[in-house]
Amino acid sequence: MAFCYNFPLKTDRKLGVYLAFAKALFLITLLTSCNSNTNVHLDTVDYKRIEINDSLAQEDSIAQFIAPYGAKINQEMNRVLCYNPKSMHKNDTPLNTALGNMLCEIIVEQVNPVVKSRLDTNIDVVLLNHGGIRAPLPAGEVTTKRAYEIMPFENEVVVAQLNKAQMEQLIKYIVDRERAHPFSGMKISLNADSSLNNVSINDQPLTEKIYYVATSDYLYNGGDSMNFFNNTTVTKTDYKIRNAMIDYFKKVDTLKFESDNRFTKAN
């Protein structure tokens, strides 16, 4: 849009200079006063928020385009990967659960080869969080969908390197919370007053060395206040927890997981 002013053209030079000066002045006034260089004016603004619901028709061509994509997902989601003989819920037992222990075992089994190749070592300890288990695993056929339900997030396994002092903080966290945060590679027993009785790591006492702790990138980055991971060296595995589950379920025929004595409390 053009400026909405027009001065008559004159050949007189003096007048020309004068006009140019006036034009400049006018332009400055124009820019500062209305901040618009067009003569199009926004007169009215209307708004309507439209809810997308079943009162609206659907565009058939779009629905048809989506259908095969959806069908493939359903087919994959409903694919039976293995069998689970006993229902597992994250609140089945107080300090460790079959479901939590399963997740830790799966990480050791699936991710260790990656850790071996990237760090030339094995995972010493796995630590996840109780809140991160988003659904139970019912008894019966285990489908891909179940893995998505238990682990809807895209979290990946990472391996942090903790020294003895940092491990002590990790253990203190578990002891203080007294909750079924899933872990493996450690055995922790509490006294009746909830104080720490004994801890061993892979049947050895805690010593001055580097421990390789597999966890999720979410927890490593401070999720659930797991601050003992702060400033520790970390290695990515590029392996999503959910994918580790799916790959494991495909590999085995029947799941066999139980709660055990890895985390106990005296009566």
Binding site: Y5, T44, D46, E51, I52
Partner: peptide, 15 residues
């Protein structure tokens, strides 16, 4: 879940 619809009416007017 929603589509926002903003209708803008513009007039050509003297600046």
């Amino acid at each position: 879940m929603y589509l926002g619809r903003i209708d803008l009416y513009l007039n050509e007017t003297d600046i």
